[in-house]
């Protein structure tokens, strides 16, 4: 059933003032329009613009969360600038990523990479997580630069390199100078890279990673963690030989 965009004026007016505990009934029309817009480019573009415009205004956080959830489903490159504006906000960054992570357009990845260089701490980890989820190969240099020392950011960057799983990511991890929590993350990420190598038929590369980790872990690790890592290497080498 075709939806007249004018019929959405009142629901979007209500949305602009929507806060926690507010009446959700007017939002049902927007919910329905989002679903109905599948295959209707004009309606979808209209919805995307209205939702993106709301993000730039003074709408309450509940309204902005609602808009991000809808853009997660229908967003295109068109709404990326509005979402990108929120990436540096402690309150809104996650919901902006909630949408951006799922928008396939390269502009979305570019916005996340740009923010990666601008934000710090947990927000930076957020950018890393979303870029990793997108398997964004262009993030490799930035991620490589972050895998250093003992910090949760370095650990997240290592994790992301493991998710990339490419030979370049494996090389960056092998060269990383880390300690503590980041060093553990490097080991986990290298195991992921070894599995990716083995799956790609690069058995020698996989074996090399496993042997390197085994050497560091030692013959008889004293901890559950150490034994689990050793087991991961042994199982991985066996699987690589079998496969």
């Amino acid at each position: 059933m075709a939806i007249d965009p004018k019929s959405l004026d009142a629901p979007f007016t209500a949305l602009a003032a929507f806060d926690w505990g507010g009446d959700v009934q007017p939002l049902a029309a927007i919910d329905a329009a989002v679903i109905a817009s599948h295959g209707d480019a004009a309606l979808r573009a209209d919805l995307e613009k209205r939702l993106a415009d709301l993000l730039g205004g003074k709408a309450p956080s509940a309204a902005k969360q609602y808009a991000c959830r809808k853009l997660c489903l229908i967003g295109t490159a068109g709404c990326v600038p509005a979402l990108a504006e929120l990436l540096g906000s402690k309150e809104e960054s996650h919901m902006a990523r909630f949408a951006l992570q799922q928008i396939a357009a390269p502009e979305a990845a570019a916005a996340l990479r740009k923010a990666l260089g601008e934000v710090a701490g947990d927000l930076k980890i957020g950018m890393i997580a979303s870029l990793a989820a997108r398997r964004d190969a262009e993030s490799l240099p930035a991620l490589t630069a972050l895998v250093s020392g003992d910090s949760t950011v370095a650990a997240a960057a290592a994790e992301a390199l493991g998710m990339l799983g490419t030979p370049e990511a494996a090389a960056a991890l092998a060269a990383a100078k880390t300690s503590g929590v980041a060093a553990e993350a490097v080991v986990d990420a290298r195991l992921a890279c070894a599995e990716a190598s083995a799956k790609a038929g690069k058995k020698a590369e996989a074996k090399s990673i496993y042997e390197s980790i085994l050497k560091a872990v030692g013959e008889a690790p004293a901890t559950h963690r150490g034994r689990a890592v050793r087991m991961a290497c042994q199982r991985g080498m066996f699987a690589a030989m079998e496969g």
């Binding site: 997660c72 489903l73 229908i74 996650h94 980890i125 957020g126 997580a129």
Partner: peptide, 17 residues
Amino acid sequence: DAEANRLVDRARREPWI
């Protein structure tokens, strides 16, 4: 179905990955 694939997972709030 690109839209359906947007619902296969979701972004987790930082610092969880």
